[in-house]
Structure formats: C-alpha cells, structure tokens
Design a protein around this nucleic acid. Structure first.
Length: 920
RNA sequence: GCAGGAAUGGUGGAAUGGUAGACACGGGGGACUUAAAAUCCCCUGGCCUUUACCGGCUGUGUGGGUUCGAGUCCCACUUCCUGUACCA
C-alpha cells in the first residue's frame, strides 16, 4: 500500500484532538518542562513557509522531552492587538476584532495541519478581556510602585509616601525622572494634587512630558525599539522628535539588573551582546561647570574625565532646559531660530546630513581645572535624552567635537603625547598625558587610564562632580494614540490620573464610530460615548502599545483560566520559568527586554518565583524567499533562457515560482499566467527554459511566497517538518528552496515501504548489525536534539534506513526503535507505525530509547595517542598478511617511521585482523 | 565607527584537532516500460596518469604560525551577513 499522507495525517490529527492527547495538567509528581514559541501576530496574509520553522523545532523538542517522561507545557496563543488590523479597519470600517478573529481562525487551521502538539485549551489572545485584564492589572501595580535603588527592588508607593512624610527626600535613593529634593515639612504641607504630582517622579508607570518619537503617518508615538534609522520599523515612515505628555514605564530603573541577569541565562552570545549594547552601561563622571556671570552650574556627563584640560567649549542639546537659562539676550533670536529649524527635521534627516550645525548662546562657562572661560554652544549633535543633554567638548580627542571646532574655528588642544590632531581627532583611550597641568591637578605623564581615575578622585574631593554610571536604555513610552490596543485603567480628576480599582477590571475597549482621530486631534477613543466613570471622570484616550500584551503572556499560559490572578502561586511554582524559548532575533531590544523587565517587576512584587523568564533562548534564522526570473528581450515578447541571456539585451522579470520546477519554466503555464504573456516566445537551451534565481525577502510582490498548506497537501506535514529541519542549521538564515523537498519525501515513502515489509508478529532479536545501526541512530539523534542540530538528524534517519534496507531487515525490534526516535520529527507516520505495532495510546508517550555503547564498535586508534607517557598508534596492513610478517610490514610504513622519529618500538601488539598497535 | 557571526563542490549543507565534501538536490549513465511518470542501480570537487585496473597531485576566502596531523586552534588581512549608532 502506498504512503497516503493525507489519509494518515488526517486520521492522527483527529485522534490527537478527540482524545485531548496534548492537554497538560500540573502534576507535582512529575518533572516539568516548559517549551515556548513566540506567539504570532495573526496577519491577513496567513502563514508562509518561513513562519513554522521555529514552531517545528520547538515541537520536536517538546515531543522529545515528553517521550523522555517530562510533563511538557507547550502552549500557543496570539498577539492580537496591533496596527495592521486597525489600518484595515480604517479602510473598510470592519471592526478590527472581526478581522483579527478571522485571521486567528486561519492561523489555527494552518498550524493544525502541521501537526503541532499544542495544548490549545491554554491558548490566549491579547485582545481578550479575560487576558488584558491582567495587562491592566500589571500597569496599576507599576503605577503604585517605585524603585528603591538601595534595596535594589520595587516597593509600594505607600511606603514612599510614608518615608517622604518623615524624612523628605533626605537619604532617599530612588529611580526618578529628575533630581528632586524636598523636606518632610514641605511634603507634609503639600496638597493632595501637589503630592501626586511629586510622586509621578518616582512611579514605575508614570505620566511625563518627555521627548518622544512621533510618527505622523501612523498617528502615534513609538518606543525606541520601534524606530530604526530614523523611520518606523513598521511601515518605514519618518519619525520626528516631539515633546509630549505620555505614559512611560521606568524600565531604566532595572538597567543594571537587566544587565546582570544576562550572566545567568543560556542565550546566544550575540543576542546578549545586543541587549548589553542596548542597555549601554557606561562608567564616567558627572561634572559641574560654572556659568560665568550666572549662579547656574552646567552638569555634564563624561567618560573621559582625563580630558578636562582640553575642554575648549561646551555644547547643549537644542531641547535642553539649560538653553533658555544661559542664552544671552543678544543671541536669543539666533538660538530660537536654530531650535526651530532643528525641530522640523526628522530623525532621518538629522542622521543623514552629517553637516555640522550649531549656534553660540552668548554665554561662557569656566573650565574648573584651567579657570579659562569657554563658550557655550547649542547643537543637535548633542542628544537631549542621554546623560544630562549637555557636554564638555574636547575637540582633540572626540571626532564630533573636532568637526564642530573646525567649523566654528575653536581651539584644539592635544592632550596625549604624539597625537597628531592637525587632520583629525585622536579618539583612542591610550597614551601618555601632556598639556594637563593646572593649579591643583597635574596629569602630565600619566596614562589615560590613570588620568581618568585620578581626575575622578579629584573632582569628588573638590566637589566638582561625582562618579556616575549612565545607561543608554531609556524609559519605554507606553501610550499609543490608537484604537486597537488595551485601554488604560485610568481616569482623570482635574487632569490628575487615578487608577481604577482592581475589582473594576477589565476596563473594556469601547466601540467607536470611526477608527480615525477626532477632529480636534484626540485619539480614536475620544469618539467613544460615555468614556468616563460613573462619576463622570474621563478615562484615558490612549491605548497601550503592542509589547504590553506580550510581556507576560508566558505566565498566563501557566494558569490561563484563573479568574483571581495572572498566575496562581501553585502553578507558577510548578512551571516557574520557560525552559526553552524559540523565536526571532528581531525582538532582541523590544519584547525580550520588556518581558524581562516585566518579570523582574512581578518578581519584586512576589507574584512570580523567578526573576528571569526565559532560561534558554534559541533564535531560529529567517527563511528568505527564492525568486525566479525570466529574461525578456527588450522591446519584444521573447524570453531567453538564463544560460543564453548574455547574448541578448534583456530585462529580468519576476516569475511566479509555482510556474517553475527545479528552475525550469513551465512555458505553457507561463503563457496562461498573464494575458500579456499569452503570445510569449521562448529561446530555450537543451529544450528547456531555465530561469534565473535570487534570494530575496519572501513577499507577494516577488512572487516567491510558499504557503505551507500547499506543501502539506502535496507532500504531507511530516515531509514539511523534516524538510524545514533539513534545510540547514536552525539558527541560520537560509532561503526556502522547494527543489530539495523530493528527497525528504522519498525518504518517508521508503520508510513506509520498509515498514510494510516488517514482520510485525515476529519476535526475533535484532542482529548485531541491526543493533549497531539503531543504536548509532539513537545516539546521534539524541545528541542532535540536545544541540538543536536537527538537520543532521534527518540525514541520520536516511542513513539508518539505507542500512536496514541493505541488510534486508524486517525486524520488529528495529521498527519499534525507529518509530520511537522519528516520532518527534514525523509524528503522523510514527503514530501510524505505533498503532500497527499494536500499541495503545499515542506515540508522544512512547518512551525515548536509550542507546547502549556496547553495540557501537569503537574505532581503532590510527593516530598517535599519548597515554601514561607512552605513545601508541595503529597502522593498517593488508588483511592477508601472514601473522609473522605483520610487525615488520607495519614498521616499514612511512607514517610509522615518522611517528617513531628514530626510536625503537617498546611493544608491538598485533590485533587479530589487520591492525597493529605500536607502543613507543 | 562599534559589536556579533560567517566564508567548504553546480546548489543546500556534513565533519569531538585525525581518511574533507556525510546526507540531499541538481547533473550524467543504466535497468524496468510500447511510451511517459514513478521506482531501482551506478557515477558525480578539480587536475593529471592509464586501453583498463591501479595510481598520483591538488583542494575548505588570503597570508603566516602551533602540531606527527588544521576546514577546525592562534595572529594578521579580505569579503559578506546581522544588529546598533552623533550615547560624549
């Protein structure tokens, strides 16, 4: 009987569903294992063949762990809030929920066909009120928390209030937006409103006026990780900097813990490095410069304290609050004009035109070490959001300062011996200091490293500043001026935000008549009727960003239907952290930072037991498209085969890859493809029209999208699963190439054919050869799965089958073992075998076989091995050599001569057969 | 600029420091067939030698090094990918 994949796969998928095979329950008696996929955003385009790559890998791992006896939690859900559904709603008027649910339905369908072992009873979707209730809940808890730097953890705001009423800010070491100081008396004299305003400075979820990334096209603000190279990640629209009042999360409070936590988790070094760079810890000093003729002190941050003698001017960010305070009346107009010009530029423009620009404020500061007066400028090369938004400029040793100094003709003083600064700055942190002697401090002759340390010490002693650690990581902007997201559980009294009570959650997303902003520029929720509480206090009109719902979803899977908690204590303590998380690298600075932050916060609250959510993380590579081209001769309807195209003047045209097999074009289908090709003529080679190809992003416009449904229908889910793994290393990006799929499909057909010949009723023990083949296979596959080297496992299956076929094996025991080891990879065919072998239940509970070394004959030593001071090696001699001649022959071997290096062998061991062991 | 990773046949890719190119695709040849598809068998890095068998040389981006032995380890370089960037 032929291998009928459609029939087999349907049968076992139904069986799994009808018998709740993948339903998981907490069982303290069993060891747990939690395997998680990054849940998908259900887009309208459906899954293409690249999406399931990581899911297949995690499914293999889950099934493998389950066969090893673990209680495996392997859930899935949907990241259901997001822009595409909303944009579709704006165009069509269809509620995004309808669109989203349709897409989810389709995704579910596609996923089921691939035979994943998900426990769908635990599925979550972020737009479900029962789910986002807990997103809102976490937000409230963040609002009610502040970060105590001394204790290194979040604490309730009530405790902060208590502290302020007794001590003011004296001795308080808290994460805060700005340095504030007040006395207990001042605090106690404040009104309720004033106190709430003051507390905003400390809350972990806070509302503040900050510089934000505004995307006009998307009509919303974006977090830093949603902007790249000055444009929005989604859509690629320009982004400008704007000051707006927004909700933010104080992620920066956790910067050090986010950094430290990386040490104890099993992630790839490159991903950790990306996060380290994103967090951007730098150690330096904060220093105060006096402004001449003004009480003001300019506070700056530098990592090069050693270069203070070379400071010849200072620069403020255009948005810095210092600008208004120092600018002289005569320069005010010029400064205002400059600020205005800068604010109109998009981030992208600002980055692309690297032209030096800036304006003098008219004010001077005093270099604290030299006493000299130095001018203060404003320029957009200084960023408002980093450090203090003000810098000391050292043109000799910083390339940006150098360019600025050249442009404005400011002095450049080299501070390092031998540094030639006539053409460019000397940025390296190495060398011996010169020109660095002042009334109180002399750095001359010190190395840069020593000078930095010495200067830091000095400024601390003199009260000029302090040692300071700065992080690049900024607080996450948490408001979006959009409709399709979680509503904030916030109402306003006299413009002061208050949180809803937890009993009032979820606050449901209201209906609106249009998904566009209101006429007076309010977000879409401004259109909602009765969008206020029972006392008429208005609710917040912004919604939460995409990462809100994805930050703690892995916790909800542990206890998805709990009405009283995000996750119950027992369930959390059973499942704890995710043991294996598989997903794309693109979330390195977004979701994977936010989730860790969120988890650490919940850990501080005592809600979760682990302070790192994902123990091991594997990034699957991206699957790119493989496009095909035909070459049209210019101005004709004639197409030239790829091998001949250079002889003509041609233009490549993307051709739908479904019209191409192994790069050969189906010319008839091509003529039918589009009306203007109906009359196409072909210049062929060897009777075939060969297409060109290129690796590109998989997209509709390139006609290179491969839908997994088509593959499943034609070859089967097991073939798809094996082939996706066979394509190459999991973590590597690679193009999808349907060309090779026949090989894998052929293997499954052969496996099927072999199994048909197996003597199912026989009870003969496996032969020595069979045992060796099977144990070699088990050893290989077990090792491969542990190392996520699934591609070589597929090859191992093929080799093992080839060996069994060669030895004409029909042994039942071999079939039994084969079924068990291939089950994670090709579960449908394995399930079929499992039942034919007479077993009950599902193959997912078939015990994973252990290999036994004794069946694996050791390879003989062929190269010199040192052991106990003796060197031993093996030489091969022809098998028919007479016994007494063996050693003589071995010694004559040129390699043996080389290895012995003129020494006489101490011992020659003749092993039966043709191998000689020589010990020197 | 900085950080991380990669470079092996026509293609995707294998190789605890130990016979480079497993496995698969593609290609070539053959069997079966009226024919095609499917299936099965053989060959397939390059160069040289040979009637044939046999055999030799060369070969993992480039140049050095360590080692009895290097695709693998070390140093320098080239190219490509990915991420990130006026972060002081």
């Amino acid at each position: 009987m032929d291998y009928k994949h459609q029939e087999i796969e349907k049968r076992w998928q139904d069986f799994w569903r009808d018998n709740d095979i993948f339903k998981v329950t907490e069982d303290p008696a069993r060891k747990k294992f939690y395997v998680l996929d990054m849940f998908p955003y259900p887009s309208g385009a459906g899954l293409h063949v690249g999406h399931p790559l990581g899911y297949i890998a995690s499914d293999i791992y889950s099934r493998y762990k389950r066969q090893q006896g673990f209680n495996v939690l392997h859930p899935i859900g949907f990241d259901a809030y997001g822009l595409p559904a909303e944009q579709y709603a704006i165009q069509t008027g269809q509620h995004p929920e309808i669109t989203t649910n349709q897409n989810i339905e389709r995704y579910r369908n596609q996923l089921d066909k691939i035979g994943f072992s998900y426990d769908w009873s635990r599925a979550v979707r972020t737009c479900d009120p029962e789910y986002y209730k807990w997103t809102q809940w976490a937000f409230i808890r963040m609002f009610d928390s502040w970060y105590d730097n001394a204790a290194g953890k979040a604490r309730p705001v009530a405790e902060l209030e208590e502290y302020l009423s007794q001590h003011g800010t004296e001795g308080l070491d808290a994460a805060q937006t700005e340095e504030h100081s007040l006395t207990a008396a001042e605090w106690n004299a404040m009104t309720e409103k004033e106190r709430r305003a003051a507390l905003m400075n400390y809350r972990l979820a806070y509302r503040a006026e900050t510089m934000v990334n505004w995307c006009e096209e998307l009509g919303t603000v974006l977090a830093n990780d949603e902007v790249t190279e000055g444009v929005s990640v989604r859509g690629g629209y320009p982004v400008t900097q704007r000051k707006m009042r927004q909700w933010c999360l104080r992620v920066s409070a956790y910067a050090q813990r986010l950094l430290d936590g990386l040490e104890k988790i099993d992630w790839s070094e490159s991903l950790k490095e990306t996060q380290r760079n994103w967090i951007g810890r730098s150690e330096g000093a904060e220093m105060r410069f006096d402004v001449v003729g003004n009480d003001l002190k300019l506070e700056i941050f530098t990592t090069r304290a050693d270069t203070v003698f070379g400071v010849t001017f200072m620069v403020l960010a255009p948005e810095s609050e210092y600008v208004d305070l120092v600018t002289t009346p005569g320069q005010r107009e010029a400064v205002e004009e400059y600020r205005k010009a800068v604010s109109h530029k998009t981030e992208r423009e600002r980055q692309i035109e690297k032209k030096v620009s800036g304006v003098f404020t008219g004010a001077y500061a005093r270099n604290p070490l030299t006493g000299k007066e130095i001018p203060i400028y404003v320029s957009d090369y200084v960023l408002a959001g980093y450090g203090t938004g003000a810098i000391m400029a050292v043109p000799a040793h910083d390339s940006r300062d150098y360019a600025f100094a050249r442009h404005f003709d400011l002095p450049i003083i080299p501070l390092i011996e031998g540094a030639d600064v006539s053409e460019q700055s000397f940025d390296a942190k190495e060398g011996i200091m010169i020109n660095s002697e002042g009334p109180k401090l002399n750095l001359n002759g010190l190395t840069v490293k020593e000078a930095i340390a010495r200067t830091k010490e000095f400024i601390r002693e003199e009260g000029l500043g302090d040692v300071k650690v700065n992080y690049r990581l900024r607080d996450a902007i948490f408001s979006r001026q959009r409709y399709w997201g979680e509503p904030f559980p916030v109402y306003y009294v006299d413009d002061e935000p208050y949180m809803l009570h937890e009993d009032e959650l979820p606050l449901l997303l209201p209906e609106v008549d249009s998904y566009l902003p209101t006429n007076d520029g309010q977000p879409p929720l401004g259109r909602a009727k009765n969008w206020h509480d029972s006392d008429g206090h208005p609710y917040e009109v912004c919604t939460m960003p995409g990462f809100a719902g994805s930050s703690a979803y892995y916790l909800r899977y542990m206890d998805p239907h709990n009405p009283d908690a995000l996750v119950g204590r027992d369930n959390d303590e059973y499942w704890r952290a995710v043991d294996l998380y598989i997903g794309g690298r693109e979330h390195a600075t977004g979701h994977l930072i936010y989730s860790r932050f969120w988890d650490k916060f919940l850990y501080d609250l005592g809600v979760v037991a682990e302070d790192e959510p994902f123990r091991k993380l594997v990034n699957q590579g991206m699957i790119q498209g493989r496009s095909n081209f035909v070459y049209r001769v210019q101005g004709t309807n004639t197409f030239v085969s790829a091998g001949l195209k250079d002889k003509y003047d041609t233009a490549p045209i993307h051709v739908d890859i479904s019209l191409v097999k192994n790069d050969v074009l189906d010319t008839e289908a091509f003529r039918r493809w589009r009306p203007d090709f109906a009359e196409a003529e072909f210049i062929v080679e060897d009777g075939k029209y060969v297409c060109g190809w290129a690796v590109e992003k998989m997209s509709k416009s390139m006609y290179n999208v491969v839908n997994p449904d088509d593959i499943v229908e034609r070859y089967g889910a097991d073939t798809l699963r094996l082939y996706e793994m066979f394509l190459g290393p999991l973590e590597q990006s690679k193009p999808w190439d349907t060309n090779g799929i026949d090989g894998v499909n052929r293997f499954l057909k052969k496996l099927w054919g072999w199994f048909e010949r197996v003597d199912l009723d026989g009870d003969a023990p496996m032969s020595r050869a069979e045992l060796k083949t099977m144990h070699k296979l088990i050893k290989k596959v077990t090792g491969d799965i542990e190392e996520f080297s699934f591609n070589t496992s597929v090859a191992a299956f093929m080799i093992a089958l080839g060996e069994l076929q060669q030895m004409k094996s029909t042994n039942r025991g071999a079939a039994e073992l084969f079924t068990r080891v291939i089950a994670p990879f090709a579960p449908h065919i394995a399930e079929e075998f499992w039942h034919r072998l007479g077993h009950e239940g599902s193959v997912v509970d078939a015990e994973w076989p252990a290999f036994e070394e004794k069946y694996l004959v050791e390879d003989s030593v062929k190269y010199p091995v040192s052991f106990n001071g003796k060197t031993r090696f093996t030489i091969e001699v022809p098998a028919d050599t007479p016994r007494e001649k063996v050693s003589e022959l071995a010694m004559a071997d040129p390699q043996a001569e080389k290895w012995m290096a003129g020494k006489t062998p101490k011992k020659v061991i003749v092993v039966p057969g043709k191998i000689v062991n020589i010990v020197i």
